[in-house]
Amino acid sequence: MTIVAMATPAQAQKKSAGADPGPVFEGMLQCRTITDDSARLACFDRQVAAFADAQKTGEVIVAERKVVEQARESAFGLAVGESTLLRGPDGEPLKSLSSKITGLRPLPGSGRLSITLENGSRWEQTDPPSYIFSPKPGQMLVIDRGAMGGYRAKIEGRTGFTRVRRVE
């Protein structure tokens, strides 16, 4: 399980997500150092109650790693995807996404494409149409970060890419 504690902006700048468990969880960890059994149990009872209260109010979020990974993929390409909360164990944002194309639609008047992926995200082609990039539903699309903050899409196993932007 991954336990993510909310940090102040200053803490978030100093440490990557997951590096600092936060004061509520840290209190539970401190209970382990108490040698007297009844005092240690009383400490754990107090700290677990504080942890449960913090979870109930949203101050602390508890999620399995799988759920966090799904959220990272779902947010890829959106401004929220840069959040420290959705960074990986290495503190880095997601660098690429691979998902099956479930829908293609031409954008009116431009010949560019609107691409819907299996994960529900929708991307729009920003480069002019090209024979190099001719996706079909069912193919795997790999989207990665391009130069200067943009995104590039390519059909898995083929050369050539097109620039895209996340719209939904």
Rank of each mutant, 00 (worst) to 15 (best):
L94M: 11
T33F: 09
A17P: 06
E156G: 00
Q11L: 10
F161A: 14
L86E: 07
V48L: 14
F25Y: 13
E82A: 12
R145G: 04
E69L: 11
N119G: 00
Q11T: 06
C31G: 05
V48D: 06
M28E: 11
E59W: 00
N119M: 02
S114N: 10
V142D: 02
N119V: 02
C31F: 11
G109Y: 11
R163L: 07
V68W: 01
Q11R: 15
A39C: 02
S16D: 08
S121E: 01
E168D: 15
L94N: 08
R163Q: 08
D45Q: 14
Y131K: 12
T116G: 04
S16M: 10
T126W: 01
C43R: 06
P129F: 06
A49G: 11
T102H: 05
A147W: 09
A147V: 14
R158L: 13
P23K: 11
P89H: 00
R46E: 15
S16Y: 14
G150S: 13
F25N: 08
M28S: 11
V4H: 07
Q70V: 05
T102F: 04
V4F: 11
R145W: 00
F76C: 03
L97D: 05
R166W: 04
I34L: 15
M148N: 11
L78C: 02
P129H: 10
L94D: 09
T162W: 00
P9G: 02
E64K: 03
R158Q: 15
F76Q: 01
I132S: 04
A7R: 13
S134F: 00
W123H: 04
T35C: 04
G111S: 06
V164L: 03
D45M: 08
V167M: 07
A39H: 04
R32Y: 12
T57S: 15
T126E: 12
I3D: 00
V62W: 05
T8D: 15
S134H: 02
A63Q: 13
L94C: 04
G88F: 01
D90R: 03
P135R: 06
F76D: 02
A17M: 06
S16I: 07
A17N: 13
A17Q: 12
Q125A: 07
L113Q: 05
R145F: 00
L29D: 09
S38D: 14
S83P: 08
A54G: 12
A79E: 12
G157K: 06
T126I: 13
A147E: 12
P89S: 02
A52S: 11
M6Q: 11
F161S: 15
G58D: 06
R65Q: 06
K66D: 03
V167H: 06
Q30H: 10
K154G: 05
S130C: 04
E118N: 02
R112K: 15
T126M: 12
V167L: 08
S99A: 14
P21G: 10
L117E: 06
A71Y: 07
D53M: 12
F133Q: 01
